[in-house]
Design a protein around this nucleic acid. Sequence first.
DNA 1: TGATCATATACTCACGCCGAGCATATGAGG
DNA 2: CCTCATATGCTCGGCGTGAGTATATGATCA
Lengths: 353, 353
Amino acid sequence: MNPEANIKRRFRTQELDADEIQEPAPRSDAAGVEIGLNAAIVAVIDDEPVALVIREAEGATGQGDMLPFGPFSPIAHRTLESGLRSWVAEQTGLGLGYVEQLYTFGDRGRHAEPGDQSLHVVSIGYLALTETGHARDLQHGAWRSWYQYFPWEDWRKGRPEILAAEIEPRLRDWAQRPALRSAPVRPVPREDRIRICFGIDGGTWDEEKVLDRFELLYEAGLVDEARRDGREASSAWTGALPRLGVSMQFDHRRILATAIGRVRAKIKYRPVIFELMPDDFTLFELQKTVEAILGPHLHKQNFRRLVESAGLVEPTGDVKTQTGGRPAKLFRFRREVVLERPAPGVRVKAIRS
Amino acid sequence: MNPEANIKRRFRTQELDADEIQEPAPRSDAAGVEIGLNAAIVAVIDDEPVALVIREAEGATGQGDMLPFGPFSPIAHRTLESGLRSWVAEQTGLGLGYVEQLYTFGDRGRHAEPGDQSLHVVSIGYLALTETGHARDLQHGAWRSWYQYFPWEDWRKGRPEILAAEIEPRLRDWAQRPALRSAPVRPVPREDRIRICFGIDGGTWDEEKVLDRFELLYEAGLVDEARRDGREASSAWTGALPRLGVSMQFDHRRILATAIGRVRAKIKYRPVIFELMPDDFTLFELQKTVEAILGPHLHKQNFRRLVESAGLVEPTGDVKTQTGGRPAKLFRFRREVVLERPAPGVRVKAIRS
DNA sequence: TGATCATATACTCACGCCGAGCATATGAGG
DNA sequence: CCTCATATGCTCGGCGTGAGTATATGATCA
C-alpha cells in the first residue's frame, strides 16, 4: 500500500469546524505547496510586551507589518527550526534562544496576497522568547507592543474601552445575522461563542483565549484581514468600520495571536518566563514581566511566596538600589528546578497503586 | 523586501536542540517538499486504549504498522484537516469526530524509507478521538493497544517490568558514553534527562512525557526506528538488543507518542474524555476510560465528586443493571459546561484590579 | 540632618480544594 | 435468605492559596 501514489479527489466528509471561508478556485498543482516558517518573537521591554515585526515601507505593495518569515528549504535547512533561525538571523540579525513550534496553518485564502488567491502556502508558526538584553541587538525590524495589534487584550488599566465601545455591539449585531455556509454537526450558537471568548454576560475573561477572540472577529468580518481575504463585512457597519487593532500581512496576526495565547498559558506551568529576564533581577521586576505577559495585576506577597517556595529562584547576594525605596535583593533563575519538579500542579492527580 | 525570492544557503546558527541525527546528502530540490497528513486515532475499547493502525502484510516492503496518512493536496483538500478526514475515510472507512492538530515534524531522516533518504516529507500529526460505538464501524485497519508500541507506559499493573529489566540499564550505559555531535549551548546531562523522563533516582513518573521518553530512547539508539534511520546502536548492546515495543513505519511512532501525551494532558483541563464515551454511561465506566488513558488508578469517590461537582455530567434517570452489584445510575455529558466554565483550574490566578 | 515616603520583606489567618477513609444503599447470585 | 460486589454518600484533615496586616530599610527633600 503506497498512499503517496494515490492522490485523487474525494468526497468531503462533514466539516466540524465552524469556518466560513470563501473558496477561490485553486490554480496551482498538487506539488506546489510551499512551507513558510514564521516567527513570533516576544520580549518584554520596559514592562511592555513586544513582538518583533518587519515594517513595510509606506506605500509599498503589501499592507501592514509582517513577522520574520521565509520558506523552508530542505536543501539549506537541516530542520524546520534551524530554517527558522536562519531566516530570523538574516532578516533581523537576531540569534534566537528559546524556540517552540506553535501551529501549522493551511487554510485556503488565509495566506493570500490580494490578486493572487491561489498561492498555497502552509504556514508553520513558531514562538520565540528573547531576553531584554539581547532584544537590543536588533539590526532590522522593530519591536512593537503586541497590544497595538490586539488592543482588546490590554487589561493593565482595567477592562479596555474598545470592548464595550466597538467590539461588543458589532459582535452582537453579527450574532443576529444568519450564518451562511457553516455546516458544523453541532454548531455552537454565535451568542455563546461571543460570551465565552469575550467574557460578557456573566462569563469570565480568559486571557489565554487570544486566538479564539481573533478568529471570532475574523469570522465576523471585523478585522481588516477578513475583508482582505474576501470575507464580506458586517452589512450594518460597512463603510463605518473602525480598525480593530493594527492588521498584519498574510495570516501573521493569527500567528501572533497564537503566540500570545501560548505564552500566557505556558508561563503558568513551565519556567519560560525566565527566557525573557536578564540573569539577575529583583522579584518585583519578575512580577512586572509576568504582568506584562498576563495582563492584570498579581498579588505581590503571594507572587513572592509562590516563586520562592517553588524553588524557581535563588538570591545572588547582591541588592539593587535606586528602586525608589528599600533596595531589592537580586535573584537568579534556579535552572535545577527543571531537574527536580516534573510539572507544577496537574489536575487529576493519580494515586500510586 | 520579499523573502520568498531569496532562497539561498546560509550559515547555521547554533543549534539548541540536543539532536544528533545523521545527515544524508539531500537529493530533491527546494520545491519538492511534500506535506503528509497523519492521524493518530484513539479510542478506548473494553477499557483498553487503542490506536487505529494500518497493518502491513507479512513480508511486504515496509516494516511495521502505519498510522492512516496521505499527502496534502491543495487542489483536493480545502483545509489540512479536511484532507486528513478524507484520507482516513478512504483508508479506514471511519468518519472522524473530534480532531486536533498535534505537531509538525520535519527533521531529515526521520520520515525516510530505507534506501531513499532524500524524500523530504513534512509530517503534520493529528490527534482524533473516537467513541467506542463508532470505533466498530471500521472497514480497514485494526485497533491495537497503544501499549504494544509503548509497553513502558503501561502502569495499570504497577511499574512495568521492562523499565528496570531492559530500559534503565541500557540508558545508564548510554549516559556513560560520550555525546558525539550534540552542540547545545547549555546541554542537559544525559543522566538528568533520563531521571526526568523516566522518574528514577527520586524523580516522579510524569505520564504526560510520552514523547520525551520515546525521543530519549531514539537518541540512545534503543528503538528500531533509530537503527533504521542510521543511528548507531549502543555499542555495548549491539546484537543483543530486544525490541522496545513494536516499531512503526516512518515517524509514526513518534506521532503516536505525541498523541498519547497530548490526550493525557488534555483530559485534565478540557472535557475531551467524553469524545471517547457513548452518550450514556455510568460514572465507573467513565472512570475506567480515564484510567485507560492516564494509567494508574484513581480514587473512586473523589473522582465521582470531582466529575459531579464540576457539572460535567447529568443523570439520565435510567440505571444500568447487571453490573455485578447495585445498579449504577446512567449519566450523560453536560455540553453546557463549556459555555459556563472557561477552563477549570489555572495556576497563577489574576486578581481583578 | 531628620521627617516622610516608597518600596521590600515577613508573618498570619481563613477558606476551599482535594486526598483519604468510613459508612450505607441496593441489587445479583447462590 | 444470606452473602457479596458494586454504587453511593458523608466526613475529616492537610495543604495550597487568596488576602490582609505589620515591619525593615533606604531614597528623597525640606
